[in-house]
């Protein structure tokens, strides 16, 4: 499989009062036209890995890598202008909670259409038509109506479909979804994931699904990276998570409750044994 993105020795570094801190500490991985899951607990560096790929590590943080290549472009040495040309058009990102990630005072249709305005010379009419098409593609029944609504007028599930529509309207090569369903009701999660999955497969995109939910990632991804303390501690096919070897992954799997559980207490991670160095 030809790789879309290849990352070697990526670090995300924040300056601090006591010298710099690395929240991502030298990870290497590649992404093809596949669905790659990145799992880990809060603070494991999974979100920052996604931001680094987009060139959106918040200041004063910085992403440093030996190599971070996307389709022949070295992202590690790309300037802001170069990133701007890629963002939305070839690399895109779905954020966690549509309540906060959609602009409250701009109509949904215009928010989606913006991406087209930044990256194409499409006329106003053409933009409108494409926005309506993409709204239909994320299975919104009445695109004409939703086009005119403001974000506070739609439900969380629909908001997240709008977000996805915004990020696929230009048919990017790679979509990074950072906890795309954690803010949603359990009842609509599967629906949103299914829509995303369908678009990714049909358009042959690479998907990076960032989550803390092992089971979800195992179900919707081809391959899984497990991150802990800024490092990748496990990499395996999604179907083979049960055969994981790293003690952290095993610990996580062991702490998942089951319906037929006879255990009184779920096991607690023994962090001392994991050798966390912070």
């Amino acid at each position: 499989m030809s790789a879309l993105i290849e990352v070697e020795n990526l670090r995300v570094r924040f300056p601090g009062d006591h010298g710099p801190t690395d929240v991502v500490r030298g990870i290497s991985f590649s992404l093809g036209r596949e669905r790659l899951g990145i799992v880990g607990e809060s603070g494991s560096g999974k979100s920052m890995t996604g931001r680094a790929l987009m060139g959106l590590v918040p200041a004063p943080g910085r992403a440093i890598a030996d190599r971070m290549v996307f389709d022949g472009i070295d992202l590690a040495r790309l300037d802001e202008r170069g990133f701007r040309r890629l963002r939305g058009a070839r690399l895109s990102m779905v954020l966690q909670d549509p309540k906060f990630s959609l602009n409250p005072v701009i109509r949904i249709g215009e928010q989606i259409g913006e991406a087209l305005a930044f990256h194409s010379r499409a006329s106003r009419r053409e933009r409108r038509r494409r926005v309506l098409d993409v709204l239909a593609a994320v299975r919104i029944d009445d695109p004409e109506r939703v086009y005119r609504l403001f974000p506070h007028e739609v439900s969380g599930g629909m908001g997240q479909r709008v977000m996805i529509a915004m990020m696929v309207v230009l048919e990017p090569d790679v979509m990074i979804a950072d906890e795309p369903t954690s803010a949603l009701d359990v009842s609509v999660r599967a629906q949103v994931l299914e829509i995303m999955d369908d678009l990714v497969r049909r358009r042959g995109m690479g998907l990076v699904l960032i989550s803390h939910d092992l089971e979800m990632v195992a179900r919707w991804c081809d391959r899984v990276l497990v991150m802990y303390d800024g490092r990748i501690v496990e990499e395996c096919a999604a179907g083979r998570l049960a055969e994981a070897t790293h003690p952290y992954t095993k610990g996580l799997l062991a702490s998942t409750p089951h319906l037929d559980d006879a255990r009184e207490l779920l096991p607690v991670l023994d962090r001392g044994a994991l050798g966390a160095s912070r």
């Binding site: 701007r84 939305g88 895109s92 909670d97 990630s101 990020m167």
Partner: peptide
Amino acid sequence: QEYIVTARAKGAPERVVVWRH
């Protein structure tokens, strides 16, 4: 705010991020 990140993720130029979003 998060929607500023969204605007940047769409490739919005700084001028649009600041004056519109």
